[in-house]
Amino acid sequence: MDTTPLGSWNDGAAKRAIVDFVTAAAVAGSPGFVAPMDRVAVFDNDGTLWVEKPAPVQMAFVLGKLAARLEADPSLARERPYRALVDRDASYFHALNEQDPDAVASMVDAIGSAWEGTTLAQYEAEAARHLESWRHERFGVPYSGLVYQPMLELFDYLGAHGWRLFVCSGGGRDFMRVICEDTWGLPRENVIGSAPEFAWRDGVPVRRAVLHGPVAIGPGKPEYVLARTGRLPRFAAGNDDVDVELLASAQFALLVLHDDDEREYAYTEGAERAHATARREGWTTVSVKDDWKTVLKERSDEEAPE
């Protein structure tokens, strides 16, 4: 099949490994052949598809909601994460960014309570209003300008070779579904992530305060993928420690290394285990600095897949 070969990728080991794998997977009878029904590719979101520093895009939306609740009910300041908001506790938010289980659990509980009883339509409208005005503090761009152009091209390349694409993130599934079609060209049903239980009330679904299953980090990622698709991924991409289990479940694992502090950010915190596992297992690693000609580039309507 004749496809555009990842134009924003430099010709190097990472690009060659991707092309070799995808090409072999499409050739029946080759040692690397992957049957069409098994061509499932799964991507993490924060730090893999778009910029996650200085905090994930969803964080401002969540903190704004919690701040409003705290203003309405100051007694909430006695408990986490509201106490961290009042005290400006940087250590808590650092633990949250590192996806410390205790910090994450307290935030999940707060999010559940904050939107309990909200209809899906109400939640999505609230998220859309927030995203319409939100801009990145360093780059000054909306969320759509934070997406990695090389990853959009990888979506197109895999799709042209018969791969079904999914996003699986520890972030909120319903938050990502607000932007997935316009930003990634993916249907809503191909977005997997942490999500609440819903209850059917008066003819509409409303959010409950409890999660539907575990948070989609670590082992939760392949568990969610298997539950959603009935298969484990053959191709997976991630960038930090909570993606290790997802990457280990795939035939081809792609790990993004953030090492470009001029065009994006350079950091290794929260990815030490992922880097060590990549070296040990021979995963394909992508250097933002060395492997991507372009990092941030907003896709035009004409470039979106049909």
Rank of each mutant, 00 (worst) to 15 (best):
A77F: 11
R78S: 12
E79A: 13
E79D: 15
R80I: 05
Y82E: 11
V86W: 04
A95R: 14
P101I: 10
A103K: 06
A103D: 04
A105S: 14
S106A: 11
S106R: 02
S106I: 01
I111E: 10
A114M: 02
E116A: 09
E116H: 15
E116I: 02
A121L: 03
A121I: 03
A121G: 02
A121R: 10
Q122I: 04
Q122W: 05
E124W: 00
A125L: 10
E126A: 09
A127F: 02
R129A: 10
H130Y: 14
H130D: 04
H130V: 08
L131M: 06
E132S: 15
H136P: 13
G140Q: 11
Y143W: 13
G145E: 12
G145K: 08
Y148N: 11
Q149W: 13
Q149T: 06
M151L: 14
L154I: 03
F155L: 05
F155Q: 13
Y157I: 14
A160F: 09
H161N: 15
H161R: 12
H161V: 08
G162R: 12
L165E: 06
G170T: 00
D174P: 01
M176K: 00
M176D: 00
R177M: 03
V178Y: 06
I179K: 07
C180G: 10
E181P: 02
D182V: 02
T183L: 07
W184K: 01
G185H: 08
R188K: 14
R188N: 11
I192Y: 07
S194Y: 00
P196V: 14
E197Y: 00
F198D: 04
W200L: 11
R201P: 00
D202P: 07
G203C: 08
V204E: 15
P205N: 09
V206F: 06
R207W: 02
R208Y: 03
R208D: 14
R208E: 09
A209R: 11
V210H: 12
H212Q: 11
G213L: 09
P214N: 02
A216R: 00
